[in-house]
Amino acid sequence: MKNPRPQPSRAGHAIHMATHATPLRMTLSSKWAIWASFGLLAASGCLWLIARYALRTQGQFGELPSPLEPLSMKLHGVSLLFMLFFTGSVLHSHIRRAIRSHRNRVSGWLVIAMLVALSGSGEVLYYFASEQARPIWSEVHWITGLLFTLTFVLHPVIGRKSRNGSGKLNSLYK
C-alpha cells in the first residue's frame, strides 16, 4: 500500500524547519481539554471557598460545615487529575516548542511553576498537614489558586500579543 503522506527528505525537512516560524498553537481538541479541565478545577475550588467561608451554619455544638464542602473537594481532586493529564499531553507539542522559540516564556513558566506549587500544596493538605498547619496550607493553596487562575487566563492573551508583535507585552515576554 502506498504511503498517503509523502515524507520530506532530510535536507528538505531541515530547510523547511529553518525557514518557517515554529507554530506554538495547540490543537483545538487540546485547547478544549485544557480549558474544560481548568474550568472545572477553578469552579470547584471557588465552590469550596464559598462553601467553606460563606455557607457554614451554626449548630447546637458549634459551626457546621456545608454539605457542598466535601462534594467540591471531590470534584476538585478529579478535575486536578484531568488538568495534570492534559497539561502533560501538551508538554511536547506546545511547551517544548515554546521554550525553543523564546516566546511567552515568563507567563508560561509562571503557569507551570504555579501548577507545581498548587499540586504540592494540595498534596500536603491531603496527606501531611497537621490540624494546626492545615489553615495556613489551605490559605497558601487557595490564594495561589486564584493567582494561578489569573495567570492561566492571561497566558494565551500575552502569547497572542507576542505573536502579533503588538503592544509592549511583546518586548517584555520574549
Rank of each mutant, 00 (worst) to 15 (best):
M1K: 01
K2T: 00
P6W: 02
Q7N: 03
S9M: 02
R10D: 05
R10T: 03
A11T: 04
G12V: 00
M17Q: 09
M17K: 11
T19E: 14
L24T: 05
T27Q: 13
T27W: 11
L28G: 03
S30K: 07
W32M: 13
A33D: 14
A36Y: 06
S37P: 05
G45S: 12
L47K: 00
L47D: 06
A51Y: 07
R52V: 04
Y53P: 04
A54H: 01
L55E: 06
L55F: 02
L55T: 01
L55P: 00
Q60I: 08
L64R: 05
L64K: 03
L68D: 03
E69N: 02
P70Y: 01
L71K: 04
S72H: 06
S72C: 10
M73W: 01
L75E: 02
H76L: 10
G77P: 12
V78Q: 13
S79I: 14
S79F: 08
L80M: 15
L81W: 09
M83H: 03
F85K: 15
H92S: 08
H92E: 08
S93G: 15
I95D: 07
R96L: 13
R97A: 07
S101P: 03
N104M: 12
R105G: 06
S107R: 01
W109I: 13
V111D: 08
I112K: 10
A113H: 07
L115M: 15
V116K: 08
A117R: 14
L118M: 12
S121D: 05
G122E: 08
E123S: 15
E123W: 14
V124I: 15
L125R: 10
Y127V: 07
F128A: 04
F128I: 06
A129W: 11
S130W: 05
Q132T: 05
I136C: 13
W137E: 10
H141G: 09
W142Y: 14
W142A: 08
W142Q: 11
W142N: 10
I143F: 11
G145Y: 02
F148M: 14
T149L: 09
T149Q: 01
T149I: 10
L150T: 13
V153L: 14
H155F: 10
V157Y: 11
I158C: 04
G159T: 02
R160C: 11
S162L: 11
S162Y: 06
N164A: 14
S166T: 15
S166C: 13
G167H: 13
K168P: 09
S171Q: 08
L172M: 13
Y173D: 15
